[in-house]
Simulated scan of single mutants.
Amino acid sequence: MIYKFRAILDAEEDIFRDVAIQEEATLEDLHNALVNAFGFDGLEVASFYTCDDTWNQEDEIPMFDTGDTPGEQKTMSDYPLNQLLDQENTKIIYVYDFINMWTFLVELAAIEEAQAGEIYPSLLFSHGELPETAPDKEFEAENDDFYSEFEDDLDDDDLDGFGDDSFEDYGFEENWN
């Protein structure tokens, strides 16, 4: 079977690509297909994130094992698409280049029979041009009054000892080395 995905750049403008890929392909294969579809150079790190039906980010699936014990963390190459996505679980988030944060909402749009003679993965449709820079992200706290607990901020008393080069209170001697 073939999975057909629509990857939409998380931006105000409509910029998306439709790709088709074998259901046995891995998330790493999908990553490579998206890199090619959007014209990236593929030199940056990326991750997929599982999400709920309203695109709330859940678990990260990285390109590389970044765990404390080698081999302990699963990576993109460990996840065949058909083990992670199906007719009920159709959404996943893709982030390319953690400096610029190119963020894509990727949705499984169809599961179909492979077309004879077609080479997969393939770019099915392209709409919109990728901007020169990634769209700005506005990160919001889950709680609207996140800062309310910090309303009192720092008092002048909280800064005693700073700015007067006085470190006696910290147990440092003037020439400690």
Rank of each mutant, 00 (worst) to 15 (best):
I119E: 11
D97Y: 01
P121D: 01
A109I: 15
I99W: 09
L81D: 05
E132C: 04
S122F: 00
E129R: 14
I93V: 08
E88M: 08
A116Y: 08
Y120W: 05
L81V: 04
K91P: 00
E118W: 09
D78Q: 01
T103L: 04
I92N: 03
D86C: 12
F104V: 09
G128D: 14
S77N: 11
T75K: 01
E129V: 13
E88S: 15
L108Y: 13
W102F: 02
N82E: 15
S126N: 13
W102C: 05
E132V: 13
F98S: 03
L85Q: 12
N89G: 06
F98A: 03
S77A: 13
L130A: 06
E132T: 14
F104Y: 10
L123I: 12
A109S: 14
L124F: 01
V106H: 04
S77W: 00
V95A: 03
L85V: 05
A110Y: 11
Q73M: 15
F104D: 05
I119D: 06
S126C: 11
Y79F: 15
E118S: 10
Q115I: 13
K74A: 12
E129W: 07
D86M: 11
A116H: 11
L130C: 06
M101R: 07
T103I: 05
E88Y: 09
K91I: 01
F98T: 02
L124V: 14
